[in-house]
C-alpha cells in the first residue's frame, strides 16, 4: 500500500511537471521544474527502500543488525538535492523576472508567437 501511494505520487508529480515545462509561459515552466524536483526527491528517497519507524543512525559500538535500520545515504542525498534545486530554482526565478522586465512578455521565447 505504502509503495503504491508513493509511486502514484511520484508519477502524478512527474506527469504534471513534464506537462508544465512544455508550456509556453515562464511561470508554468518554473512551476513544472519545481514539481519535477519534488518528484525526483521522493524518488531518491524511495531508493533507500521504504521502511517504517526505523532510525537511520547506528548506535555507538558493537555489532548491530542492519535490517533494523533505514539506509541513511539516500536521506543525505535528498537533503543535498533539495538545497541545490532550491538555490537553482531561485536563480531561475531571478532570470525569469529579468526576462519579463527586458522583453515585456512572459513567453519563453521573449516575444508573443503572433506578434
Amino acid at each position: 500500500m505504502m509503495e503504491l501511494v508513493l509511486s502514484l505520487a511520484i508519477g502524478i508529480l512527474t506527469a504534471s511537471g513534464v506537462w508544465l515545462i512544455l508550456r509556453p509561459r515562464t511561470f508554468q515552466v518554473i512551476t513544472g521544474l519545481c514539481l519535477l524536483s519534488y518528484a525526483v526527491n521522493l524518488f531518491i528517497f524511495s531508493m533507500g527502500r521504504l521502511t517504517l519507524a526505523q532510525p537511520p543512525i547506528l548506535p555507538r559500538g558493537g555489532l548491530v543488525n542492519p535490517e533494523l535500520y533505514a539506509d541513511p545515504l539516500p536521506q543525505a542525498l535528498v537533503l543535498t538535492a533539495i538545497v541545490i534545486s532550491f538555490a537553482t530554482t531561485a536563480l531561475f526565478l531571478v532570470v525569469m523576472m529579468a526576462a519579463r522586465g527586458l522583453t515585456g512578455t512572459d513567453h519563453v521565447d521573449g516575444r508573443e508567437p503572433d506578434a
Binding site: 515545462i21 515562464t26 515552466v29 521544474l33 524536483s37 534545486s85 537553482t88 530554482t89 536563480l91 531561475f92 532570470v95 525569469m96 529579468a98 526576462a99 527586458l102 522583453t103 519563453v108 521565447d109 521573449g110
Partner: peptide, 12 residues
C-alpha cells in the same frame, strides 16, 4: 537574458 533563460531551464 533570453539565452540564459533557456540554458538554465535545460540544465535544471
Amino acid at each position: 537574458v533570453r539565452a540564459g533563460l533557456h540554458y538554465i531551464a535545460i540544465n535544471l
